[in-house]
Design a protein around this nucleic acid. Structure first.
Length: 522
RNA sequence: GGCGAAGUAGCUCAGCUGGUUAGAGCGGUGGAAUCAUAAUCCAUAGGUCGGGGGUUCAAGUCCCUCCUUCGCUACCA
């Protein structure tokens, strides 16, 4: 029996089209999900859109649309993004779905039953224009002593009826939980921030709004809608059946890991666990806050005009090139920088020149010198053994170990080292020269390379699933071998003896070039 | 202001609990090879490890201080 693995992205807020950050998160999460599947785990991968809340309402109004229509449209862009980027999510959830409303109301009732909800008044500085409350410390002094919001809009002291969640009650339980589960918040820098924040004291949380109605209705208080975060976080459990006692629910909760951006760590490491404690449900095992992507080292913003559409990048360079770049170049958990030049350099060096060319030269030699039939092995030399051992170790031990640490860039780094070793081996063995001097030795060398390349292709599937599959198809590697446990088994001889014949090899990773028109989108 | 992270070769970064000549990739330079997507392989590049001080037989690796950049400091999400 394989241990279930439940992983989620954050549930994206779709008041705009997906940006590169959404793509990055989806890709990273997908790579982990794919790895776990290939590692024999039973995986559930959930993503989706968080469509309630004030901002959606405002955005729709600004566009002169119905909020519902905007949500439908925007959510569809996120769904398309997942399809385009080869995101292997099992469920794409929308918080506007009926079952989700039911789940949110169910968790609400649990919080209420725990005595953690009470009706009170929310008081604060409210900006009518922003339709938002601001903390005293955020305000600035305008002309004539008028207090202004960070957006420069006037604010006034306002009182609103609101349900409150007794977050303060969970201050110590949360701290205890962090201490007892050191892996709960990662990376460590995020954990430090969270612990300090909680140690600083928790105030009860306003968890309902009456100022707008785009949300989940509070049971028994129909003029209130639930605070969007309470509703959004609930997606992680409604996605797999909660409140019903479904098979998925029993199998997959608690989640193995929530992959989120560093900007929403608090919601996932303070509010969410507190809600779950109150509801009497187990807590997720890990929350991982990844970094942001910077454009040439600068924050992306609309005013700088450096916001990049991930779909454009995928179209320009290819889905797998984009996936590879992001996972290889950005150390997971830290901020990363990207630029068209960086993508091109990385992908050309690693995928086209090193790995792609390795596959191409090897398969071409087999195609030309063996009529495409997989060559026989006439006894391995020490060099062959050393290469097989190196590649086998990388594939079966090092890459999985880095994946368990969610260190994808390091997994790809060791993968590249194995690729380098293969290229060095080709040059030393020079099978093209052996063709005349020692044909049997040439066959053994090519067979050794074939095995290594197949293993490397199997290992790299989580990162570049489309290209890896194409290569493995060209090589005739059976589906049941394409995983981490069977990659190193003895599948080669049966395949060769079965008479498999490769066709004229096709290059998989074309060398990329800078688009001729630079800055056309500006 | 408080708390935290980071500052290492031209560029992007590795360097865990301190220990022989500080590492990788890319770029640059010089060779080799020609099977392959002119791709590959080998060798090499003399960076005060942000500044200063300290602890130690020994410090990017610990302590103090200063400089720079960044994050968090709750109810928009």
């Amino acid at each position: 029996m394989s241990e279930p693995f439940y992983i989620t992205t954050a549930i994206a807020y779709p008041n705009g089209k997906p940006h590169i950050g959404h793509a990055y998160e989806a890709i990273a999460t997908d790579a982990i999900a794919r790895f776990q599947r290939l590692n024999g785990r039973e995986v559930c991968f959930v993503t989706g859109t968080d469509e309630h809340g004030l901002k959606m309402d405002q955005t729709a109004r600004g566009l002169g649309k119905e909020t519902r229509d905007l949500a439908d449209e925007m959510s569809s862009y996120f769904r398309q993004m997942c399809a385009t980027l080869d995101i292997s999510a099992d469920h794409f959830c929308r918080t506007t779905a009926d079952n989700h409303h039911k789940a949110s109301q169910a968790i609400w009732k649990r919080l209420e039953a725990s005595g953690d909800l009470y009706l009170d008044r929310y008081e604060g500085w409210y900006s009518v224009r922003d339709e938002a409350y601001y903390d005293e410390t955020e305000l600035t002094e305008g002309e004539g002593g008028q207090k202004l919001s960070p957006q420069g809009t006037p604010v006034e002291w306002t009182v609103e009826e609101s349900w409150f969640f007794r977050l303060s009650k969970y201050e110590q339980p949360l701290l205890d939980y962090y201490a007892a589960n050191p892996e709960f918040i990662r990376p460590d820098s995020r954990k430090n921030e969270t612990v300090k924040f909680v140690e600083g004291g928790l105030k009860d949380l306003s968890v309902s709004r009456t100022s707008f109605d785009w949300g989940v209705k509070v049971p028994g208080s129909e003029n209130h809608v639930m605070y969007v975060w309470l509703d959004a976080l609930t997606t992680y459990i409604s996605a797999i059946g909660f409140p019903d006692d479904t098979e998925e629910w029993r199998k997959f909760w608690p989640a193995s890991v929530h992959i989120i951006g560093k900007d929403i760590v608090r919601f996932h490491t303070v509010y969410w666990p507190a809600f779950l404690m109150s509801a009497g449900l187990p807590l997720p095992k890990m929350v991982f806050g990844h970094g942001f992507l910077l454009s040439r080292g600068e924050k992306m913003s609309k005013s700088l005009g450096n916001v990049v559409d991930p779909m454009e990048l995928a179209e320009l360079f290819g889905v797998d090139a984009l996936r590879y770049f992001l996972l290889r170049e950005v150390s997971f958990g830290q901020d990363g920088s990207y630029s068209p030049e960086a993508i091109i350099t990385r992908v050309n060096a690693d995928l086209a020149n090193s790995f792609g060319n390795l596959a191409q030269r090897t398969l071409s030699l087999i195609f030309k010198n063996c009529e495409g039939y997989l060559p026989a092995i006439h006894g391995h030399h020490a060099d062959d053994q050393a290469l097989l051992e190196l590649v086998g170790n990388v594939v079966s031990t090092e890459i999985p170990s880095h994946f368990e640490d969610l260190a994808m860039s390091q997994a790809l780094e060791v993968w590249m080292q194995a690729v380098f070793a293969c290229n060095a081996y080709v040059d030393v063995q020079a099978p093209w020269a052996l063709k005349k001097t020692d044909p049997e030795r040439m066959e053994t060398v090519l067979a050794t390379l074939f095995i290594c390349i197949a293993q490397l292709a199997i290992a790299v599937q989580p990162f570049i699933p489309g290209s890896a599959a194409k290569l493995l198809d060209q090589m005739g590697v059976p589906d049941d071998v394409r995983n981490y446990t069977r990659a190193g088994s003895h599948w080669y001889s049966p395949l060769a003896e079965g008479g498999f014949q490769i066709a004229q090899p096709q290059g998989l990773f074309p060398r990329l070039e800078l688009p001729a028109e630079e800055g056309a989108s500006a």
